[in-house]
């Protein structure tokens, strides 16, 4: 396994770049971080629509969330990949497709996390804000959302973790990420897929493990800050 790594580490790290598109671990991280960063504002909007919106808006947001969560991500990726060009009138690349699919998918999952964060805020916080003359929007943006986000920060990291793993589905649309790199190495070595995939698992483990560690640290930090 060490010999596979020493021969192929570069393709695992950055894919075919610069002789081809950037890929490998680098693309996995880029896709996960970008899609989560784009999904978060969307998730906030959905969560707010569900908790603060008029009944009709709340219902629409809930239907969106339920719908997205009922579809397997793989289906979703395929659907975006082949339907988006028809809707947009021009083809979009594998990476853009994967990010778009993940943004929609993650926003619905993240919105549930944020919603839980919002609902966990004691009523007193909002009653206090109202009685102090704050209007609806400042209450939401300065009192409710910051607290909801702070409370859900560790869960958000966990979600980043699962997003990293979900990017591996991108290889079905040949977006050049980590799993695709492993498939390419497989094609060169031919007879050692078991070792290649073990190596792949080890890389994912290190990446996700360090994210979990970060989440743990963040939680500790958070508690300490509250206590000081």
């Amino acid at each position: 396994m060490i010999d596979i790594l020493s021969d192929h580490w570069l393709i695992l790290l950055i894919g075919q770049y610069p002789h081809g598109p950037l890929g490998g671990l680098a693309m996995t991280v880029i896709m996960a971080v970008t899609s989560l960063a784009l999904a978060l504002p969307l998730a906030l909007a959905i969560a707010v629509a569900r908790t603060e919106g008029t009944p009709r808006i709340a219902r629409a947001a809930q239907i969106f969330v339920d719908l997205v969560r009922a579809i397997p991500l793989l289906m979703f990726v395929f659907w975006v990949y082949f339907a988006a060009p028809v809707l947009l009138g021009r083809p979009i690349g594998g990476v853009a497709t994967m990010i778009a699919a993940l943004v929609i998918y993650e926003s619905s999952y993240l919105s549930e996390i944020v919603r839980a964060g919002i609902e966990a805020i004691p009523d007193g916080q909002i009653e206090a804000a109202r009685s102090l003359g704050l209007r609806r929007w400042p209450i939401l943006s300065r009192v409710v959302l910051p607290q909801a986000l702070q409370a859900s920060a560790p869960s958000l990291i966990v979600q980043l973790n699962s997003t990293v793993k979900e990017t591996s589905l991108a290889f079905v649309i040949s977006a050049p990420e980590l799993t695709f790199s492993a498939t390419q190495i497989n094609a060169v070595l031919m007879t050692r897929p078991l070792k290649v995939f073990a190596l792949l698992a080890a890389v994912y483990f290190c990446l996700c493990g360090s994210l979990s560690l970060a989440a743990g640290l963040m939680e500790t930090q958070f508690r300490r800050r509250r206590a000081n």
Partner: peptide, 17 residues
């Protein structure tokens, strides 16, 4: 396809297809 040995694969030395 880019993952088919002999026909379309990544050269391990320079990572070109």
């Amino acid at each position: 396809i880019g993952t088919v040995p002999i026909f379309s694969f990544q050269s391990p030395t320079d990572r070109q297809t």
